[in-house]
């Protein structure tokens, strides 16, 4: 199990995966907006998305858990 922590503070602009979906390491999973800049966040490892903890439009802080992989 691996948790993806947000690398920076920002607003969730887009979530590109769904719960139950299989992802590979370095796949783009969400897009974070900060300073009017779109920043893709990548999956930390291969796995299946177990739980997504954020919603589109939500403001998240640095090192907040975005999703959990299994």
């Amino acid at each position: 199990m691996a948790a993806l922590e947000s690398p920076m503070a920002g607003k969730v602009l887009e979530i590109l995966v769904q719960e139950g979906q299989k992802v590979a390491e370095d796949d783009e999973v969400i897009i974070l907006e900060a300073m009017k800049m779109e920043n893709p966040v990548f999956a930390p490892a291969d796995g299946v998305v177990k739980e997504i903890k954020v919603k589109v439009g939500q403001q998240i802080a640095e090192s907040e858990v975005i999703l959990v992989l299994e």
């Binding site: 690398p7 800049m37 920043n39 893709p40």
Partner: peptide, 20 residues
């Protein structure tokens, strides 16, 4: 200028978030 630093950094390592 901060955005530029971030972009040049992420070109070298896409998981490097320098913006803040």
């Amino acid at each position: 200028a901060a955005r530029v630093a971030h972009k040049v950094g992420s070109e070298a390592d896409k998981k490097n978030y320098l913006l803040m």
